[in-house]
């Protein structure tokens, strides 16, 4: 598991202080959850407990918000987050095959992370790169005109780069 660095929790507390004393203080919860996810990559329980204490909001309420929005990850995510575009253009151009290849290659389902914490697989709607469909996005970078072989090559490249550190 990823350890929760105390200095990051401190940064989170610091972030919350800027809202302190302002009207509708509690309504900053979503912004604070965004900050927590930016710090940890997901919402660890320790972060939600810290927010609860610092904002005086019951943990159940925070949990309700965190689970409602798909944007928030409740589990640690991998080093490479792969979003497979399933928009119309990509779908027509074979996105399903790309997705199936990734599932087989990584042995995970959509929404899961590989045990080595390298890859997280997600679905996406249109990524706005229909001209080079089918596309996937790895972290913030788009890769286009894919097929099964190219996808496997990409994954192997990522593995190599991760092994080098």
């Amino acid at each position: 598991m990823i350890d929760i660095q105390p200095e990051k929790l401190g940064e989170l507390r610091q972030f919350i202080t800027q809202f302190q004393g302002k009207p509708y203080f509690e309504s900053n919860l979503i912004a604070v959850l965004h900050k927590a996810q930016a710090l940890f990559g997901y919402l660890p329980r320790e972060a939600m407990d810290t927010i609860a204490e610092a904002m005086n909001i019951p943990t159940a309420h925070i949990w309700g918000v965190a689970t409602f929005y798909h944007y928030f990850n409740l589990k640690p995510i991998g080093k490479f987050v792969i979003s497979v575009c399933l928009g119309t253009a990509c779908y027509v151009k074979g996105a399903q095959e790309v997705l199936d290849t990734l599932r087989n290659e990584l042995h995970i389902k959509v929404g899961e992370t590989t045990p080595d914490m390298l890859f997280t697989l997600q679905e996406a709607r249109c990524l706005g790169a229909c001209g080079i469909a089918p596309v996937i996005m790895i972290n913030d970078k788009i890769y286009g005109e894919l097929n099964s072989k190219k996808v496997v090559d990409l994954i192997n490249q990522m593995r190599k780069s991760a092994a080098k550190g």
Partner: peptide
């Protein structure tokens, strides 16, 4: 007491305590 919340959404909504 605020022990309960409606977690997740849609068909998957479940009433539960924090962190299930």
């Amino acid at each position: 007491v605020h022990n309960l919340t409606q977690a997740h959404r849609g068909f998957k909504t479940v009433v539960m305590p924090a962190y299930n």
